[in-house]
């Protein structure tokens, strides 16, 4: 599991961890049941505070992405594919919104954007 933390990026460290682990789970890199390092181990490896890594895990737990079992540690949850798909769709929506914002900044019309998307989509396929 690769986690890259930047202390100068402005984004809170716990949010960086949540974002990266979430992505790995949604992309299927971390499958259901995979054990995660303990809170204190993670803190040690990333040289961050225990509270920060604890907060990241709590956040992931709230999102239903991981389960914590007392005395055993944390695992990637066995959430059903439908749920994960929904999560991924939400991530996609977020990215599309970014694209829309960017296009507005450049003064693009919707039709132009749709055309661009269509071209790219067909190119990939």
């Amino acid at each position: 599991m690769n986690l890259l933390i930047s202390s100068t990026s402005g984004e809170p460290i716990y949010a960086q961890i949540v974002g990266q682990i979430r992505q790995m789970i949604l992309q299927g890199e971390l499958v259901s049941g995979t054990p995660l390092p303990s809170i204190r181990q993670l803190a040690k490896e990333l040289q961050i505070s225990v509270i920060t890594s604890k907060r990241a895990y709590e956040e992931l737990e709230r999102e239903g992405l991981i389960n914590s079992v007392v005395g055993k540690g944390s695992f990637v949850s066995g959430a059903d594919p439908e749920f994960i798909r929904e999560q991924r769709l939400r991530v996609m929506e977020g990215r599309l919104k970014e694209v829309i914002d960017e296009s507005r900044l450049l003064g693009m019309e919707y039709a132009e954007l749709a055309e661009m998307l269509k071209l790219l989509y067909e190119e990939e396929a």
Partner: peptide
């Protein structure tokens, strides 16, 4: 900045704050 969980800040003999770093 990296590893502390709590920060106690003392100045001129008084505790200014005692907070979670987060």
């Amino acid at each position: 900045d990296r590893i502390a969980d709590y920060i106690v800040f003392i100045n001129d003999g008084r505790i200014i704050f005692h907070e979670m770093k987060e």
